[in-house]
């Protein structure tokens, strides 16, 4: 789009992010070995959200975008969070 400034992210950053994502993925696999009982879902969700936040911000350039897009994306994340919390009002209290 013409009204956004083009931002060039160096390859090194991309490589580092990729590495970080791989580490996080391995972590989420690794934690399944620990018996976390009811915290298991929360930990899995936190790790997954961190990963998607990084992808959105860097790979999808949200970090360098106009505020309106940031607001939209954050709003969407909040809606989904609320949906998940509501779902666990069922699973957490059965």
């Amino acid at each position: 789009m013409s009204d956004t400034t083009h931002h060039i992210v160096p390859y090194r950053t991309y490589a580092l992010i990729l590495l970080l994502l791989l580490v996080l993925t391995s972590t989420s696999v690794a934690v399944t070995q620990i018996e976390l009982t009811r915290w298991a879902t929360i930990v899995a969700l936190l790790l997954a959200s961190t990963k998607s936040a990084i992808v959105l911000a860097i790979f999808m350039h949200l970090k360098f975008d106009q505020t309106v897009y940031k607001v939209m994306a954050i709003f969407v994340v909040l809606v989904i969070t609320a949906v998940i919390i509501l779902t666990f009002l069922d699973y957490g209290f059965r």
Binding site: L89, D90, F93, R94
Partner: peptide
């Protein structure tokens, strides 16, 4: 058969 907490919230 959802939980009671979810029932009243919904």
């Amino acid at each position: 058969g959802m939980s009671g907490a979810a029932l009243w919230a919904f």
